[in-house]
């Protein structure tokens, strides 16, 4: 089984910690879903950092700090270094944004940052577009997890390019793959997992639901269903009908 830098997840759901109506609702979302990883960020200290950090630690899940909002490799590298010290982990969700409207990763800065961070001992989870050549460069840089987007962050559009996501799965059979960003419905999570992805990472679809805890549970169940399906050998699709009831023995009427 593919693992995340030596860590096996018993639940393929990774959840963000932003945009919840309250810390209590955030905690309920993690409790109801059993999500295995929580993403967090670093921002200018305004006196609330310690309480938030204590709360996230109490969730008892793996912590994945991000470099959200960084627009250059230099910024992302410095942020990653600060996160490693603060959160006491060498895991980093590497985000280097290249476009303000789509929040699309900048592939050139992303690869440059990944090379520097992998060389410095970080375990990099790169947020990337679904491009196979970028994926190859990131693996060459030392990344042992890839996180292609499903759709732009916060859009809820689901898997906009299933062909490319399937191609990535086929091209990197040994690398854990996570669909990160753009998921809106549990069925999107199931679809990613049915393709053989190893996890899904989402935030807005849960945090902005009317009932975030229930929606988190729905995503977890869908992701687990998709995972079981992928391991069960889904049937190939075909264009023509094929009767499931045997024709042999049919009465002549």
């Amino acid at each position: 089984m593919r693992d995340f830098y030596g860590v096996t997840l018993d639940n393929p759901l990774m959840l963000g910690t932003a945009q919840y109506p309250s810390p209590a609702v955030l905690e309920a979302a993690f409790r109801e879903s059993g999500a295995a990883i929580a993403t967090v960020s670093l921002r200018r200290e305004r006196g609330e950092g310690q309480a938030f950090w204590d709360m996230v630690r109490s969730l008892g899940v793996h912590i994945l700090p991000n470099t959200a909002g960084c627009h250059s490799a230099r910024e992302a590298i410095t942020t990653a270094q600060m996160a490693r010290e603060y959160f006491e982990t060498d895991w980093i969700k590497l985000e280097v944004i290249g476009h303000d409207d789509t929040l699309q990763p900048d592939p050139f800065e992303l690869v440059a940052a990944a090379e520097a961070l992998c060389a410095d001992g970080f375990k990099v989870f790169p947020y990337m577009t679904e491009d196979q050549v970028i994926a190859t460069r990131l693996v060459e840089a030392g990344c042992r997890v890839l996180m292609p987007w499903g759709a732009p962050i916060g859009s809820g559009l689901g898997l906009t390019n299933p062909f490319a996501l399937r191609s990535l799965r086929a091209a990197f059979p040994d690398i854990p793959l996570v669909v990160d960003a753009g998921l809106g419905l549990p069925s999107h999570a199931a679809q990613a997992m049915e393709m053989g992805y190893d996890a899904v990472l989402l935030n807005t679809a849960v945090a902005q639901a009317d009932d975030p805890a229930a929606m988190a549970r729905a995503f977890a169940l869908a992701a687990q269903a998709g995972q079981i399906a992928a391991r069960s050998g889904p049937m190939p699709a075909r264009d023509m009908a094929a009767p499931s009831t045997p024709l042999i023995g049919k009465a002549f009427l």
């Binding site: 919840y20 967090v40 670093l42 200290e45 950092g49 310690q50 938030f52 807005t204």
Partner: peptide
């Protein structure tokens, strides 16, 4: 942290002081 006591400051320096925050 370990380098802070040995890091001198000069006029015009830009200092960033960060802490944990919600993130996606």
């Amino acid at each position: 942290v370990s380098a802070r006591p040995g890091t001198p400051l000069s006029t015009g320096d830009r200092l960033e002081v960060l802490a944990a925050m919600q993130g996606g």
